[in-house]
């Protein structure tokens, strides 16, 4: 079976900066493939090149076997693209937007009306059908944007950071919607800065950094490199640390680390349930505990584990990705600062 996406040696340079520096990707039919990386890593640029929105500098890209460089018009008929900045018309109502995009793709006036209503219904926007998009919330815009990509039921859908800037509840709804698309037989290529999003949705993940692919695998394979979460135990008496380390080693396979303050032990865990085992064992051994918390591994910890360096922001290339407004500094940075914080 042809791959949905076949990319070899993709390159895009903005001046001296190689935003995408030789990326290979292989997305199989019917899977959700996640491209994970910090801001400015080259995710959006990659997606835009594959979506015929940016010229490809070097490399080969095929969508269901169709050459992106040679036959952009054909590729556009296979793809649905949902950008990082909702690409819907603010001056039109939700229904008008969908009707316009349907009409542009050769669908009859009557059928365009039917499709618009069905999609609005399916994406929970039926009540807002005749409202101007400029009055929409961020989550509603994203959903409308996604609905617009579904008009022709394309076999491949690109989602560029589909939940950046959404609140947790809306984000959960978006995840459900994305999963339902795969059930219909679509293949999905999505980019994200959130490890948990890639974890929740993707069958396979490619980790991108500085325009290069630094790792690839299933979420389990990636997380295995850092553990699924970390248990932080602050000891009541720092004298107990050798005893505590020995106890933890006895319970879990992962090697605990002593943090600089010496009173704190970080324990990598494969499941959060391990925390209970560790705490019970510590109580039995008579080790006093001052504080306990469980942290999910951040993207940065994955990065640290894979590349040996943190996932620092690179505002210089983020501005060069070519999205409208990309130069305004409104690149979702404020939403992600928490995620990209340097590991404790």
């Amino acid at each position: 079976m042809t791959n949905a996406v076949d990319v070899t040696g993709l390159v895009k340079a903005f001046g001296d900066v190689r935003a995408v520096n030789g990326i290979d990707l292989e997305v199989r039919q019917g899977e959700i493939f996640g491209v994970l990386g910090p801001n400015g890593a080259g995710k959006t640029t990659t997606l835009r090149m594959l979506a015929t929105l940016l010229p490809i500098d070097e490399g080969e890209a095929r969508i269901f076997g169709v050459d992106v460089r040679r036959e952009p018009h054909r590729v556009r008929q296979i793809l649905g693209v949902t950008g990082q900045y909702a690409s819907v018309d603010e001056n039109l109502t939700a229904a008008e937007n969908l009707r316009l995009f349907a009409r542009l793709q050769g669908i009859s006036r009557r059928q365009a009306r039917t499709i618009a209503m069905e999609l609005l219904d399916q994406f929970g926007l039926a009540d807002a059908a005749d409202r101007l998009v400029s009055k929409f919330s961020g989550g509603m815009r994203r959903r409308l944007d996604l609905a617009a990509s579904m008009i022709t039921r394309p076999p491949l859908i690109f989602l560029d950071e589909p939940t950046t800037g959404l609140d947790p509840r809306t984000r959960g709804q978006m995840w459900d919607t994305i999963r339902s698309l795969v059930v219909q037989g679509s293949t999905i290529l999505l980019t994200t800065q959130y490890l948990d999003e890639a974890d929740q949705l993707a069958d396979r993940i490619a980790v991108i950094d500085h325009g290069r692919k630094v790792a690839e695998g299933t979420p389990e394979e990636l997380k295995a490199q850092v553990g699924s979460s970390t248990l932080q135990v602050t000891l009541a008496h720092s004298d107990d640390r050798d005893l505590a380390m020995a106890v933890v080693r006895g319970v879990l396979a992962g090697e605990p680390t002593l943090s600089p303050e010496s009173g704190r032990i970080a324990v990598p865990m494969t499941t959060a349930d391990d925390a209970a085992d560790v705490l019970i064992a510590l109580r039995k051994a008579g080790v006093g505990i001052q504080a306990v918390n469980v942290d999910r591994p951040t993207l940065d910890e994955v990065f640290l584990a894979i590349t040996g360096h943190g996932a620092e922001e690179r505002a210089d290339t983020a501005a060069g990705t070519g999205w409208p407004g990309g130069t305004n500094g409104d690149n979702g940075t404020n939403d992600t600062s928490g995620v990209l914080e340097v590991a404790r």
Binding site: T2, A4, Q29, F64, Q77, I78, Q105, G106, I107, Q111, T114, I115, E118, L119, Q122, M150, I151, T152, R153, P154, P155, L156, Q184, G185, S186, T187
Partner: peptide, 16 residues
């Protein structure tokens, strides 16, 4: 060509 039918068409999409 390129027409889509949300809901009305076959349940699954055939890329080929």
């Amino acid at each position: 060509p390129t027409i889509g039918q949300a809901g009305a068409g076959p349940a699954t999409i055939d890329p080929a």
